[in-house]
Design a protein around this nucleic acid. Structure first.
Length: 141
DNA sequence: GCCAACGTTGGC
DNA sequence: GCCAACGTTGGC
């Protein structure tokens, strides 16, 4: 299967790219949105690449790159009676020299269709097209 | 099934 | 801290 690309949001006060760098791998636990869960359960494959996004941050933006390193497993923080929430494991790849701010992404017309930049978009796990992923890497240089 | 109320996300 | 956007809940 062709490699796919994603954007995953984390509040750096809770878990930042630096935490991921230190820990190497982490379970992406705590997602409580069905659409985001379904992306992790059904659509992610090991080796997919991930833009690590800092939300609620100064500045908000893409902080680095990770890869999917483990298929979806039951979220250990799930407190539902029946298993409901699942999460993948992600592995650190690299941290950008500086966060690529949301404001810069907005200025790039090639990224206009990214889910992240759509009005009211709050989804914490989102697909990114190969072209968009490449463009973000280019901007981060 | 509708929809108002409420809670959360996340940029500003 | 504000508030728009969106998801969920629950009464009916």
């Amino acid at each position: 299967m062709a490699k796919k690309y994603w954007l995953m949001k984390s509040e750096p006060e809770v878990f930042s790219i630096i935490d991921l760098e230190r820990e190497g791998r982490t379970l992406w636990e705590g997602v409580r949105n069905y659409q985001a869960r379904n992306f992790m359960m059904n659509d992610m494959s090991i080796g997919d690449e991930v833009l690590f996004y800092h939300s609620n941050a100064e500045p908000p933006g893409v902080a680095g790159i990770a890869t999917v390193s483990g298929k979806a497993v039951h979220d250990p923080t799930d407190k539902e009676k029946k298993p409901t929430w699942y999460c993948v494991e992600v592995k650190f790849v690299r941290k950008f020299a500086s966060v690529l701010p949301l404001g810069e992404l907005k200025k790039n017309k090639k990224l206009a269709k990214m889910p992240l930049l759509q009005r009211g978009q709050r989804l914490s796990v989102q697909p990114v097209s190969p072209a968009e992923f490449k463009e973000v890497l280019e901007m981060a240089k």
